[in-house]
Design a protein around this nucleic acid. Structure first.
Length: 265
DNA sequence: ATGACTAATAGCATTAGA
């Protein structure tokens, strides 16, 4: 099975591009972030037409995650196991943001995450990012304890190492590569989770995001922040990874591009 | 250089993204 993650930056604005990608590459599972849509506006029918069943967790204007499953391969679609991590947003009284959705798909636990960006650093948004990462680690420990095949896929908003960014100097003050952000990410790897893309591309130089500004795409000024972390039960079955880079260059593209891992069996 | 783009919501700009 092929498991993909894609920060689409607005499901309404991206719908034609998104359907095009699904039909052309047919991922078994697609974890989407930044759908930026309320639940009642999620275009489930558009995906059913091309053979995908979906669950989604949206909110007004920002954030929002969804899991799509190829119904030709898995007729039941995604079976939801959890939504949210029980952590409130950084503003007083705003409640929880839509950043976490989890489901079972064909015997594999899929967690779709949209980790807080954390800019500006320092500040309450950065504190929120670190608190969210701490809570994520707790949830991943629960998944680990179940000893099930699991993948935690999404926009982590963390540049793990200097080899994962076009210019460490240009990004030095950004929340995405602060030592605290990186430490929190490497604690997950230290717990035993496998960074799929890094494992098969250890020399780095792989980007999943290019800013809209300053000709970043044309200059290949990108970085790697979209990750798939695999439990040992899945890491052993990993046969390939990829970045669908070409989609970043299309008309009305997201600023992220899809990333995927192929699992045997 | 704190800007350059893009999306969403409500403006006739602002917030957020990364």
């Amino acid at each position: 099975m092929k498991i993909a993650t894609y920060n689409i930056n607005g499901i309404k604005a991206r719908l034609p591009r998104l359907k095009e990608w699904l039909e052309e590459t047919r991922p078994t599972v697609a974890c989407l972030q930044e759908i930026k849509s309320m639940d009642e506006n999620f275009p489930a029918g558009e995906f059913e037409e091309i053979g995908y069943k979906a669950i989604w967790h949206g909110q007004k204007s920002f954030n929002g995650v969804a899991i799509l499953v190829d119904a030709n391969v898995v007729p039941d679609g995604p079976v939801e196991t959890q939504r949210g991590l029980g952590i409130d947003g950084p503003k007083e009284g705003e409640g929880e943001q839509a950043r976490y959705l989890e489901a079972d798909v064909n015997g594999v636990r899929i967690a779709c995450i949209y980790l807080p960006n954390g800019n500006p650093h320092p500040g309450p948004k950065f504190d929120y990012k670190l608190a969210w990462m701490k809570r994520l680690r707790e949830r991943m420990a629960e998944l680990w304890a179940q000893e099930i095949p699991a993948v935690v896929a999404g926009d982590y908003n963390v540049i793990p190492e200097d080899k994962d960014v076009w210019s460490p100097k240009a990004m030095a003050s950004d929340a995405l590569m602060q030592p605290e952000s990186r430490d929190a990410y490497f604690r997950l790897l230290g717990d035993g989770w496998t960074d799929a893309v890094d494992t098969l591309n250890p020399r780095g130089g792989v980007w999943t995001y290019w800013d809209y500004q300053a000709g970043a795409w044309q200059r290949d000024h990108g970085f790697r922040i979209d990750h798939l972390l695999l439990s040992p039960e899945l890491a052993d079955r990993m046969t390939a990874v990829g970045v669908d880079k070409e989609y970043r260059g299309r008309e009305k593209a997201s600023d992220h591009t899809p990333v995927w891992v192929e699992i045997a069996g």
